[in-house]
């Protein structure tokens, strides 16, 4: 799945970072722990204005927890550590008070959820829900302006008859229409950062392409940073220019999309890329998979988290692999990376 409009993103991805104001989002050594387990460890990433960054991983790899930690929305049983700085916010979002966070959320950062069927309040008209987020942060003068702005936003996300949609209740809309409403809410206050958590997983393929296009256009028009969470490599390749691969709560590899998809270095990324194509098969003619399954929390191997499922694992992998690369945005953490030729480094 690719569209011409998105292949335009080429060249060094880091040159699009707005160096004047610094990165929009700067996450440093973010960790999430429950009372017993460490669920996310040492996640660092930076996103500049207008940059679209993907976060890939299997279910349970910590993608969504990372997003919730950035928003300060972790369940009360979990604790975050590290640092999350957002341009325009005076405070570190990790450990910020609920009052400060409420002011930041919806204004500087917003989020699109996976399940459009439950992301809207069934008892409120759609237009009111779009207007509400503007009224909360007083980005419009009053109720009438908010209502008018809501209709304009609904038109922006390509909903036909936006005025009629604004008067509708969520159950009167289809899944794709609802997800566009959710996107309209997320973009209402022109946030500096938009987080999308598998926004198209619940949609069928044709609607998926449309929503992805709207997300891309929405953030581009606002010069906003995008953190796009997905398990779908094709979707991430469509939307993003840079990608981080998560496994077992840690970032195992990061880099430009083309590089990750065509020349992965980490063994997990290699397996993930191989598993997502139907063009290559193994010796028995079966589709490629990664052997084993994602371990439960706390059952990851010591050292490299991927060691117990990795064909290249040796005793060296019992030690946590260091990050190899020029920055947190490009590099990998593997003792036996895939060489550019496809073999194993010494």
């Amino acid at each position: 799945m690719s569209r011409p409009s998105d292949s335009a993103g080429s060249g060094d991805p880091t040159d699009s970072v707005d160096t004047v104001g610094g990165p929009v989002l700067s996450v440093e050594r973010l960790g999430v722990t429950s009372s017993r387990y460490s669920l996310v460890e040492n996640v660092s990433l930076q996103i500049g204005a207008g940059e679209r960054v993907g976060l890939i991983g299997e279910s349970g790899s910590g993608k969504t927890l990372t997003a919730l930690a950035i928003l300060g929305l972790l369940p009360e049983t979990l604790r975050a550590s590290g640092s999350v700085r957002l341009r325009g916010a005076d405070v570190d979002l990790v450990g910020a008070s609920e009052h400060d966070l409420a002011d930041i959320r919806g204004r500087l950062v917003s989020m699109v959820f996976q399940e459009p069927m439950t992301a809207l309040n069934p008892t409120m008209r759609v237009g009111r829900q779009v207007a509400e987020v503007m009224l909360v942060h007083e980005t419009v003068a009053g109720r009438q302006e908010a209502d008018a702005a809501a209709v304009a936003l609904l038109a922006d996300v390509g909903l036909p008859e936006p005025a009629a949609v604004a008067r509708a209740y969520p159950h009167q809309l289809s899944g794709g229409q609802r997800q566009r409403v959710v996107l309209a809410i997320a973009l209402a206050n022109n946030p500096a950062l938009l987080i999308c958590d598998e926004p198209t997983t619940a949609l069928d393929v044709t609607v998926q392409a449309l929503v992805l296009d709207l997300v891309t256009r929405g953030v581009t028009a606002r010069d906003a940073a995008l953190l796009f969470i997905s398990h779908d490599l094709a979707v991430v390749a469509t939307v993003c220019r840079r990608v981080l691969v998560m496994y077992g709560g840690v970032v195992v590899e990061a880099g430009p999309v083309e590089q990750i998809l065509t020349a992965p270095r980490h063994r997990y990324t290699e397996g993930l890329v191989a598993a997502s194509t139907i063009e290559t098969t193994d010796a028995q003619g079966r589709l490629r998979t990664i052997r084993g399954s994602v371990p439960g929390h706390g059952r990851y191997p010591v050292g490299c988290v991927f060691a117990n499922r990795c064909d290249a694992a040796t005793s060296a992998c019992e030690v946590e692999p260091p990050w190899v690369g020029e920055s947190v945005d490009v590099g990998y953490a593997c003792h036996h990376p895939v060489s550019s030729g496809g073999g194993v480094d010494a």
Partner: peptide, 15 residues
């Protein structure tokens, strides 16, 4: 448990 409650918090709504 519904996402619209989480969404309302994401939108900056107080408790």
């Amino acid at each position: 448990r519904q996402e619209y409650v989480l969404a309302a918090r994401v939108a900056g709504r107080g408790p």
